[in-house]
Simulated assay, not measured.
Amino acid sequence: MAYWLFKTEPGECSIDDFAAAPDTAIVWEGVRNYQARNMLRDQVKVGDAVFIYHSSCKLIGVAGIARVVRQAYADPSQFDATSAYFDGKSLKDNPRWVAVDLVFERKLPAIIPLDKLKSSAKLNGLPLVQRGSRLSVMPVTPEQWQTILQLS
């Protein structure tokens, strides 16, 4: 099992959306960065644990945990002309983008804010706290995972 951190805007897909349908798989779609796509496609596996990180909102930080229940497949939003994630250059027989399915594991007692994550020396290697890192999908080492859980 591997560990990940997925960034989302709570207005699109929050930990509360997962909690509202705890037994329902939610499609993690809309990733439009090649490096993040490659991780989703090549490294994220069924059973992996994922921190759900809220960004671009009032309270930015790690909000909860989900689990991968379906490995990478063609992101359906790339073919939907009404979607904000539509990609007219992506072909059905050679899709450019992938999605994975996640299910709710649990909410953290409180959101762990970014400044608290940055203040932990044990998280210095976490891409999230490094300057210029804007990926929506990033790996988390087992040690970093435990550190983040301890911060909660």
Rank of each mutant, 00 (worst) to 15 (best):
Y3V: 02
T8Y: 00
G11S: 14
C13T: 13
S14H: 11
D16V: 10
D16G: 05
D16N: 14
A21H: 15
N33I: 04
Y34K: 11
Y34H: 14
N38W: 08
L40N: 01
V46M: 07
G47I: 10
A49M: 15
A49V: 12
I52L: 09
H54A: 09
L59E: 15
I60Y: 02
G61S: 03
G61N: 05
G64S: 07
G64C: 02
G64F: 04
R67G: 03
A74K: 00
A74M: 09
P76L: 04
P76F: 05
S77Y: 03
S77W: 02
A81W: 00
S83D: 04
D87L: 01
K89D: 14
K92I: 14
A99W: 03
L102S: 02
K107T: 14
K107M: 11
P109N: 14
P109W: 03
A110W: 08
K118D: 06
K118Q: 08
S119H: 05
S120N: 07
A121V: 14
K122D: 14
N124C: 13
G125P: 05
L126D: 02
P127D: 10
L128M: 15
V129T: 08
Q130T: 13
R131G: 13
S133Y: 12
S133R: 12
R134G: 06
R134P: 06
R134S: 09
L135A: 10
S136A: 13
V137S: 00
M138R: 04
M138F: 07
V140Y: 05
T141N: 08
E143Y: 05
Q144I: 01
W145I: 04
T147E: 13
